[in-house]
Design a protein around this nucleic acid. Structure first.
Length: 584
RNA sequence: CGGGGCGUAGCGCAGUCUGGUAGCGCAUCUGCUUUGGGAGCAGAGGGUCGUAGGUUCGAAUCCUGCCGCCCCGACCA
């Protein structure tokens, strides 16, 4: 390919709305063009990268028996009502909906469990047909509350979604494991440092779930890792052990009340009662679980030095989401101003859950549900009913890990893939059954497996760019090599560059020939910004010393190579890097 | 949706407070000179100043509504 035919467009200024590196670089290098919030044109260079990512995905999924299909992106309401997710997705407003001329309401596919389950239910009749794994690479639409960070969080994006169908749990486990392995290989082959972590299944549902994260400081997700055991989990889900409250084992004292004027927070209480540390206090977080057509107030008891994890709490309550109570709601429900809630004498309107960190605490300090009063020496089960316990606490870096007790390390990552064991959640709801060997109908046992293809590209830039610009890993670079003639008026150099270009092309290397008429400096800056891994400059040194200047982005080097060795040297480097990070 | 900010040439911005000829850099086009780290000179094109209304002799500038965009918080690949 010749650069003059490739519609290359680059900018010297960052767009004003670009916050993160990948957005800035991809916009400047002309990979993306914003149409409106969360909607981007993918330029020719980006599309080449996306095609390479797709090819890797296809090869790996085909390798584990995946079958590529294409599903409609308009999906009618009735179908989504069968799974019960229509209301859920309308309530969160994630799914954009519209009507056709007859008045039928459709949603624009944010995911495709319903469609694929309907298809599988209609076409899979016997256990003899199982297992089946289907996948597609298609545009998804999610009406994001706040699109941002360029391609990282958009409304319309390219996603690979896959679905497996098995006769039983054992089959699902095998399929899940096969997909997990394929995912590891996919990201390795893309040349990205990625890792799988335990995750919360969220709205998709199901029993088991793992996220694949590309390590990057700008990642939106925090991951806690216990290196010695290989434990890694999203903070939304991560567990840790913490030292028990020092109050454990003390002899129980009678409960008493103290006047605590305007002392509302744990910090203020520590100042007011210097002898009582935060881990001897219980704070009571008042919130409500939001359901489709109702709201339930909850009181969450947690040790004073710990924080509530809203995702864990939401899962415990079974709600769609958690909202903090407003000051006025707190006053009307508890009769006390905010900052004085506690388990003793809490109105019955509240459901109560206590975090495990509260278990075993003795003589604890908590709010009295009366303005300006706290209770001391409270003992759960004596001064108030014993609450149910659950893990609703946010684990933090430095705390002992859940397996070996070694300190948790925090890393940040970009979620590029997510796999779920769905089980029979959708098939049972939608009547997608097959006949088992005994002649009985059974619901298909399903798994579902996503990869954000366009996000993979953004994550690659986020992880691997350097101060010159983007730095694509060879397997997903728009071109592997660029041969650039720095002096297009010099016929001898042009001929030399063209010769090299032909040599690479004939060797099956994905090479771009930069024949643009522009200054040498500008051309080099431009190519480096666009992020091609290997740049071969044919210019002055070629003429003077018979050498090409080679910019090796993966190695971060600039070297001079004799002209008759250039091709072999570069070709060898390219071939050795086509495997990405896949081990030999 | 709550809180903050911004809409002026393709991109980045000044001008708005204090109303009076719409500007700068980059990009684009033409010509000449350059040609190894985003070249120089000369010239040119490109704007309903987001939009609708109002105030005024006169509005990019003041007022109001609407639209769009961005940032901070709750969703997800």
């Amino acid at each position: 390919m010749r650069a003059t035919q490739l519609h290359l467009v680059t900018y010297r200024n960052d767009p004003a709305d670009a916050e993160v590196l990948s957005h800035r670089l991809m916009a400047r290098a002309g990979y993306i063009h914003k149409l409106s919030a969360g909607l981007y044109v993918y330029g020719p260079l980006l599309w080449r990268t996306l095609k390479k990512v797709q090819d890797i995905v296809r090869e790996e999924l085909d390798g584990i028996g995946g079958l590529e299909v294409q599903l409609p992106i308009l999906q009618d309401q009735a179908l989504w009502e069968k799974s019960g997710r229509w209301d859920l997705y309308q309530a969160s407003r994630t799914m954009l909906s519209t009507q056709d001329r007859k008045g039928t309401t459709y949603g624009l596919a944010p995911t495709a469990e319903e469609v694929v389950t309907d298809y599988a239910g209609a076409t899979i009749k016997s256990y003899k047909q199982l297992p089946v794994s289907l996948y597609q690479i298609h545009t998804k639409f999610r009406d994001e509350i706040r699109p941002r960070f360029g391609l990282m969080r958009v409304k319309e994006f390219l996603m690979k979604d896959g679905y497996s169908f098995d006769a039983d749990e054992a089959g699902l486990d095998a399929r899940y494991e096969a997909f997990r392995g394929a995912y590891v290989r996919i990201f390795q082959r893309c040349g990205l440092e990625a890792f799988g972590v335990d995750a919360d299944p969220g709205d998709i549902g199901g029993s088991g779930s793992m996220e694949f994260m590309v390590a990057a400081d700008a990642g939106e997700d925090a991951i806690l890792i216990e290196e010695s055991s290989g434990y890694a989990a999203n903070v939304e889900k991560a567990e840790s052990r913490i030292a028990p409250s020092p109050s454990e084992g003390d002899a129980a004292r009678p409960m008493r009340r103290e006047h605590t004027p305007d002392i509302r927070t744990v910090e203020q209480l520590e100042g007011f009662f210097p002898e009582i540390s935060a881990d001897r206090m219980v704070k009571t977080v008042l919130c409500k679980a939001v359901h489709i057509d109702s709201e339930q107030p909850w009181a969450v008891l947690i040790r004073g030095d710990q924080e509530v994890n809203e995702v864990k709490l939401r899962n415990h309550t079974g709600g769609l989401g958690i909202k903090m109570l407003t000051d006025t709601e707190i006053e009307s429900l508890t009769g006390a101003k905010p900052g004085f809630a506690g388990p003793v004498g809490l109105p019955e309107a509240f459901e109560i859950v206590a975090d495990h960190s509260v278990r075993g605490m003795v003589n604890l300090l908590c709010g009295a549900n009366t303005t300006d009063e706290h209770c001391l020496d409270v003992n759960l089960g004596r001064d108030c009913p014993m609450p149910t316990f659950a893990d609703v606490r946010t684990a933090r870096a430095g705390e002992p890990g859940p397996r070996n007790g070694d300190p948790l390390i925090e890393r940040r990552g970009i979620e590029v893939g997510h796999i779920f064991k769905l089980g029979t959640k959708y098939s049972a709801a939608m009547g997608a059954t097959f006949t088992d060997p005994n002649g009985k109908p059974q619901p298909l046992v399903m798994g579902c497996y996503g990869i954000g293809v366009s996000r993979v590209a953004a994550a690659a830039v986020e992880q691997q760019s350097d101060d010159l610009g983007i730095r694509w890993p060879v397997p997903i670079a728009p071109f592997e090599v660029v041969v650039a003639c720095l002096s297009v008026k010099d016929e001898e150099l042009v001929a030399a560059a063209e010769g090299l270009y032909a040599q690479f092309r004939e060797a099956g290397i994905d090479v771009l020939y930069d024949d643009r008429k522009m200054g040498a400096g500008a051309k080099m800056k431009d190519l480096e910004l666009m992020g091609f891994p290997f740049l071969v400059y044919v210019g002055r040194s070629w003429k003077q010393d018979g050498q090409a200047e080679v910019r090796d982005r993966p190695a971060g080097e600039k070297t001079l190579i004799a002209k008759d060795e250039v091709f072999e040297t570069i070709a060898r480097s390219v071939r050795s890097q086509r495997r990405g990070l896949l081990p030999e």
